[in-house]
């Protein structure tokens, strides 16, 4: 536990100190929220959606923020590899699993904070959370998304030599995950032959879970979302830990 806490502490210190990263990664979500939320609110009508399109995409944007921050946090261990700090941790008498879990929890924490900031912005835009109960459900899903995708980032970073592949990962892995997730559109509105796609995307379950928590309605049963996401999280942490164990420097 001590070791996980130590690694977590370092991650959080670094996160809280890099103001530019914190503000920079808020840029796109806030932009989406304002432009799409206000811009499309009067045009788009979603059935059974009292809070309008703005209300509909808020959970989507929260997940987006958590997703991007966590993947980035995970991939950051490439910097540690390049700047040599990873050696310092790998040569210590601690197991790699502990290091990996510390990194994952650290990244997820940073992602959770980013998500909270979006929720605060949303409250200012008029979001009403139905109950305190619902808020905690949303937090639970945010944590699950954060853990899963930080672990995914670590898995990717373990196989990468440097940051050159980062754009590739963003464009061909992370954006599709976000785009297909139903963050911006109701998944049932897709033509029937495409409906399976969002269901293959793990983030869909996260978005739906957060939507259930923050708005009280969702297209997917919350228990299903929860089970699928927990499964995905366990899978990602396992894969991440496995690949991280094989890092050689």
């Amino acid at each position: 536990m001590d070791i996980i806490y130590t690694i977590w502490l370092r991650n959080i210190k670094r996160y809280l100190r890099s103001k530019s990263r914190m503000i920079g990664s808020l840029g796109m979500p806030v932009f989406f929220l304002l432009v799409l939320g206000f811009g499309l609110n009067s045009v788009v009508r979603i059935p059974r959606m009292e809070q309008g399109y703005t209300g509909f995409i808020i959970p989507g944007i929260v997940s987006m923020s958590v997703l991007f921050t966590s993947v980035f946090s995970g991939i950051q261990i490439i910097w540690d590899k390049q700047f040599g700090f990873l050696k310092e941790t790998l040569v210590a008498p601690v197991s790699r699993i502990e290091i990996m879990i510390g990194q994952t929890v650290g990244g997820a924490t940073a992602a959770l904070i980013q998500g909270f900031i979006i929720i605060i912005v949303s409250l200012l835009m008029g979001l009403h959370i139905p109950s305190i109960h619902g808020f905690f459900i949303a937090v639970l899903f945010m944590i699950l998304i954060g853990l899963s995708f930080t672990a995914l980032g670590i898995a990717i970073a373990s196989r990468m030599e440097d940051m050159h592949g980062f754009q590739l990962i963003m464009n061909f892995v992370i954006f599709p995950i976000f785009g297909l997730s139903g963050a911006l559109f109701p998944i049932d509105s897709l033509p029937s032959w495409l409906k399976f796609l969002p269901r293959l995307d793990p983030l869909t379950y996260g978005v739906e879970g957060i939507r259930y928590g923050l708005l009280g309605t969702s297209q997917m049963a919350p228990l299903i979302s929860f089970s699928v996401l927990v499964g995905f999280m366990v899978l990602m942490v396992t894969v991440g830990a496995f690949l991280f164990r094989k890092i050689s420097i």
Binding site: R10, K13, R14, S18, F83, G84, F85, K87, E88
Partner: peptide, 11 residues
């Protein structure tokens, strides 16, 4: 002490 630096510069 490694040949390449292994400190965290942000700390």
């Amino acid at each position: 002490v490694f040949q390449d630096q292994s400190l965290d510069e942000e700390l």
